[in-house]
Design a protein around this nucleic acid. Structure first.
Length: 649
RNA sequence: GCUAGCGUAGCUCAACCGGCAGAGCAGCUGAUUUGUAAUCAGCAGGUUGUGGGUUCAAGUCCCUCCGCUAGCUCCA
């Protein structure tokens, strides 16, 4: 006897063997038709899956309305795409074809390079398959039989996967759809007709099992949704993302420049971008001072020996610029991180426990030789500025210092309107021995970090065991921008390595008059100013809040006759400390407004006869439009208030 | 680094099968003196990313290098 518990509390009883679909049919024919999959005791299966013969199960039938069925459908869509590709091209070897966020991909091995020009043909073939609406059939096979079957099909990658990856499975599953048979764990929707609106998006190279030493496959990416409108919305979101692209806006708004003659991945900050950065810097410095940090300045270069002591050289040589060799044999490295310099500052005199915690901060320029294919605008570069700080403290102070770092990062994100973020705590894998430091210190630190995070009630906290760096546990902040893209930004990391006797052998004299090893914390709320600014450009779509805007106000005259009054307004705004520009061209006011709107200037001061006579200004907000006439003083006060409050609109 | 695609005026983009490189915006000059998202006219702007090759003829076809884009890989 089987008892099936449904989400509405009803219980159905069966004494025969039933599939999820049979239960659906018993509930109602419409549900049986609409069911795309089922959730049995929390596991997602196909509707053709048999339920256990007896006992109790929770069953939920999944229809278009359930998020989980979208994933099922996309997986089926990947199969349909593979089937279409196999119909169109000879000698296609299948690799993997899973779902990803918003879509799916399938990796193929074939002689002919695929290009976007092939998409219409593949999409047309997919449409045919979907229209034919053939069922997806699940076939269970013993492992040996499966290997044989894949050999017969000529699918050598699948054979390899069976032998190397699935060798412990006695039974494996295939899915058949018409002439198409593929090794696949499933589950799938009942038939191809359940697939809604789809679009192939891109083709890219991908290595077999992610191994760069293996052959490279061709990966086709696509997206699929239950209805056309959802697809269109998604494509619109992609368009919106393109419109906000910091590389496009950075050029349009003259924020930054990357010039091939200077070098890939090396950012030139134009005056307007530099203004944004300067505001961010003075904001961060203000916070640092308030929170007891001591700013320092150190050079962007150091002797190779220093990085040999730190262990960064030659271990990370492949991602550094090679050393600079001097004629006397001395060798220097462009620094890939700031810590060794800061450690030297720590070591510049004997330290007592009374000096701790010592918090040393610097907006430090570092260089890393990222692979050419990895470079992207400002978010992935070869030279960047970390809003870096190193805290040297005692074991007992770790929790409080960690709390302070998290608090500052939270404050920074909140100030910039990045309210949607999650925190990832990375802990060590207790089974691995790759970590430095004593296990009991790790245990204490990890427990303390977790307690602090829980206490601060951090949103969406997740703990990843085994993700810690070899030198210590860490917390990363991953923020979502206003269109839902995720950016890894700030980080707080504990370090047991650099202070150790094997590295810099840091010490402080404790209350017991004996030397002790301090703990080091690395932290950077922005991560890097380059990436953070790039992310902010996209987050605000170039329309920075007033305190960050490169040009905060523009004075424009209705006619050149009023230039004199315009200049007096301009001077008053400048005297009030605002970043102001002006437009006295012999253009219509509409044209001047349009230009200022396109440049995303927050406030426009429109002045003509009426204003000149009464000593007022007509204020225009880039978002709200005309705000009406007011006294110059009132307008200045309004802007200053908005700047001081760092208002985000 | 690898795979695929791309590189034409400051910007956005045209130029058929290889046959005289072209437009809009921006810029400059002149006219216009304007009231909340584009006034009109004229001028100027190019070694088609680089170097080579095929051809009577190359923006277009082939090769090299540089750069960009998507993804893979890597990421202290």
């Amino acid at each position: 006897m089987l008892k099936v518990h449904l989400p509405d509390g009803n219980v159905l009883e069966y004494s025969r063997r039933v599939r999820a679909l049979d239960v659906a049919a018993d509930i109602g024919p419409r549900l049986a038709k609409a069911a795309l999959g089922a959730e049995v005791d929390g596991r997602i299966v196909g509707v053709d899956a048999f339920l256990p013969d007896e006992g109790d199960v929770d069953l939920r039938l999944l229809t278009k309305k359930d998020a989980a069925s979208l994933d099922l459908m996309r997986h089926s869509c990947a199969h349909v795409m593979a089937r279409a590709v196999m119909r169109l091209f000879e000698g296609v070897q299948l690799a993997f074809g899973p779902t990803v966020d918003n879509g799916f991909y399938y990796d193929f091995l074939l002689d002919r390079p695929l290009s976007e020009d092939d998409f219409p043909e593949i999409e047309a073939e997919m449409a045919k398959i979907i229209k034919d609406d053939e069922p997806f059939e699940r076939l269970e096979q013993p492992h040996a039989k499966a290997v044989e079957l894949c050999r017969e099909l000529g699918q050598t990658l699948k054979v390899e996967h069976l032998e190397a990856g699935l060798d412990e499975h006695e039974m494996v599953s295939f899915y058949r759809q018409g002439e198409f048979l593929d090794l696949c764990r499933g589950p799938h929707v009942p038939s191809a007709g359940a697939i809604g609106a789809l679009k192939l998006l891109s083709v890219a190279g991908a290595y077999w099992k992610g191994d760069a030493s293996r052959q490279q496959l061709q990966r086709l990416y696509g997206t699929a949704w239950f209805d056309k409108k959802e697809l269109d919305d998604y494509l619109m979101r992609l368009e919106e993302a393109k419109r906000r692209d910091h590389r496009v806006l950075g050029k349009q708004l003259e924020l930054f420049l990357i010039d091939p003659e200077v070098g890939s991945g090396l950012v030139l900050w134009l005056p307007k971008g530099a203004t944004v950065r300067r505001e961010l810097e003075s904001f961060i410095y203000g916070e640092l001072i308030r929170r007891g940090y001591q700013p320092v300045y150190t050079p962007a270069i150091g002797r190779v020996q220093l990085y040999e002591t730190s262990g960064h050289y030659p271990y990370y040589a492949h991602s550094q610029f090679p050393p600079i060799e001097m004629s006397d044999g001395d060798r220097f490295l462009l620094r890939p991180m700031n810590c060794p310099h800061h450690i030297k500052i720590y070591q510049s005199k004997p330290r007592s426990y009374r000096d701790l915690p010592l918090r040393i901060a610097e907006l430090g320029l570092v260089h890393r030789f990222e692979q050419s294919g990895e470079l992207t605008g400002m978010t992935r570069v070869r030279g960047f500025t970390q809003d870096d700080a190193h805290i040297f403290c005692t074991e007992d102070q770790v929790a409080d210092e960690f709390r302070g770092c998290l608090d500052m990062t939270q404050f920074v994100l909140k100030t910039l309107g990045l309210d949607d973020y999650r925190v990832r705590l990375s802990f060590r894998d207790p089974k691995s021995d790759k970590y430095v430091g004593r296990p009991e210190d790790w245990d204490r630190a990890e427990a303390a970090l977790e307690a602090v995070c829980r206490d601060l009630d951090l949103p969406n906290l997740e703990i990843e065991v085994g993700e810690a760096a070899f030198y210590g546990p860490k917390a990363d902040f991953i923020a979502s921008d206003c269109i839902g893209r995720q950016w890894q930004l700030g980080t707080v990391q504990l370090d047991y390595n650099l202070p150790s006797p094997q590295r810099f052998n840091l010490e402080y004299i404790g209350a017991d008059n004996h030397p002790h090893q301090p703990v080091m914390i690395h932290r950077a709320p922005f991560g890097s100013l380059e990436r953070f600014t790039g992310m902010l450009i996209e987050h605000f779509a170039g329309a920075f809040p007033l305190w960050l805007a490169p040009e905060q106000a523009r004075v424009m005259v209705v006619s050149q006759k009023f230039e004199e009054y315009g200049r007096s307004v301009e001077a008053a705004l400048r005297a009030a400390g605002l970043r102001v520009s002006s437009d006295y061209r012999p253009e219509k006011v509409g044209a001047k407004i349009r230009d200022a709107q396109i440049e995303l200037i927050p406030y426009m001061f429109v002045v003509g006869n009426r204003e000149a006579e009464t000593g007022t200004v007509a204020l225009r907000d880039r978002r709200e439009g005309d705000l009406g006439t007011m006294s110059l003083d009132a307008a200045v006060a309004k802007l200053k208030q908005e700047i001081d409050a760092k208002t985000i609109r």
